[in-house]
């Protein structure tokens, strides 16, 4: 990672002297303890921008990934022969390491958050696509047969029957994608894309650990919060699932 850094992809060589300025907490930093709460209290403001950047990275990548994967899944649902090539295509994108993806994109999109978002979106596609197609495939055939038999058109069946019934699985896919993207977006720093990764990389250049722990914790909390929001949304959108459990 440091090699990548010295390649000039990012700016971590010059460590800000203020990083070591301890304004209150005695000799926690001198002793290099695992975690210095006093330092956090004094420096929390340096995490605000990276956190916001991180949110934008994750939000854009998941939203773009969802839109593209959704369109692909609907196409593959209408034309079954597309299922395999789409699965293979998104699978390849999924397996390309994000770091290599940054380098591949550099000549085209340059350094910055766009490159990072494209790479993260490509990573997402497979997870979301797979879940949407599985969700659509798991709709009971008797339900779609009845829908067709009472006069719903194919697009009405899709909108009124198949998508609502596939929703729990689609949400499940979004949850996995979001949580993985929160973690993966810390690498955006190598594309000069900002985010919490900047603080982690800054912290990793020195022996001082508190900074890394704080940045990492913010990412973990962000993942948990996103996951919780999606979980709740899923429950609200599928009330029939809850009632089933009661009866």
């Amino acid at each position: 990672m440091i090699e990548a850094a010295s390649n000039g992809m990012m700016r971590v060589g010059a460590i800000d002297q203020s990083f070591f300025t301890d304004r209150s907490s005695g000799n926690c930093i001198q002793d290099n303890k695992l975690f210095c709460p006093g330092w956090v209290a004094d420096n929390y403001d340096r995490y605000v921008d990276p956190t916001l950047q991180h949110l934008v990275l994750v939000g854009s990548a998941v939203a773009a990934g969802f839109l593209i994967a959704f369109a692909l899944a609907i196409l593959a649902h209408r034309h079954r022969f597309l299922q395999t090539p789409f699965l293979a295509g998104t699978g390849i994108l999924y397996t390309i390491p994000s770091i290599s993806f940054f380098f591949l994109l550099l000549p085209i999109t340059g350094r910055g958050s766009l490159t990072a978002i494209i790479a993260l979106t490509a990573f997402n596609l497979q997870i979301i696509f797979r879940n949407i197609t599985t969700g659509l495939r798991n709709v009971p055939p008797d339900v779609t047969e009845a829908a067709r038999g009472i006069g719903l058109t194919p697009s009405q069946i899709l909108r009124q029957v198949e998508l609502p019934l596939a929703m729990p699985e689609i949400i499940a896919g979004l949850r996995i994608a979001t949580v993985s993207t929160v973690a993966l977006a810390t690498l955006a720093v190598f594309a000069n894309g900002g985010g919490l990764g900047t603080e982690i990389v800054t912290g990793s250049n020195i022996t001082f650990k508190t900074g890394i722990i704080v940045a990492g914790s913010i990412a973990v909390i962000m993942a948990i919060v996103f996951d919780g929001i999606l979980l709740l949304t899923g429950k609200l959108l599928a009330p029939w699932k809850r009632k089933q459990a009661i009866s």
Binding site: P140, D142, V143, T144, E145, A146, A147, R148, G149, I150, G151, Q160, V161, P164, L165, A238, W240, Q244
Partner: peptide
């Protein structure tokens, strides 16, 4: 045409949602 013809099947096929 199908909207003007009642249709009942063995598996019922009610919409679970």
């Amino acid at each position: 045409l199908r909207r003007e013809i009642g249709y009942v099947i063995q598996q019922i096929g009610l919409f679970p949602h």
